[in-house]
Simulated scan of single mutants.
Amino acid sequence: MLRATEKITALYCRLSQEDSQEGDSNSIINQKNILMQYAREHRFLNPVFFIDDGYSGTSFERPGFQAMLDEVEAGNVSCVIVKDLSRFGRNFAMTGMCTTITFAKHNVRFIAINDNYDTINPNSTDSDFAQLKN
Rank of each mutant, 00 (worst) to 15 (best):
A4I: 10
A4C: 09
E6K: 15
K7S: 03
T9M: 03
T9R: 04
L11N: 04
L15C: 03
L15Y: 07
S16E: 07
S16Y: 11
Q17Y: 14
Q21N: 10
I28M: 01
I29S: 14
N30W: 09
N33K: 10
L35D: 01
M36R: 09
Q37W: 09
H42Q: 13
L45Q: 10
L45D: 08
P47I: 07
F50I: 05
I51E: 09
D53T: 09
G54P: 11
Y55G: 04
S59H: 10
R62K: 12
R62L: 11
P63I: 05
P63H: 10
F65W: 11
A67Q: 13
E71K: 14
V72Y: 08
V72G: 04
E73C: 10
E73L: 13
N76I: 04
C79P: 07
I81E: 00
V82C: 05
K83S: 11
D84L: 08
S86K: 13
R90N: 02
R90W: 08
M94L: 15
T95H: 00
M97T: 05
T99K: 01
T100L: 02
I101C: 12
F103L: 03
F103N: 00
V108A: 04
F110C: 12
I111H: 03
I113T: 06
N114S: 14
N123A: 02
S127K: 10
A130Y: 04
Q131G: 13
L132F: 15
L132S: 15
K133D: 00
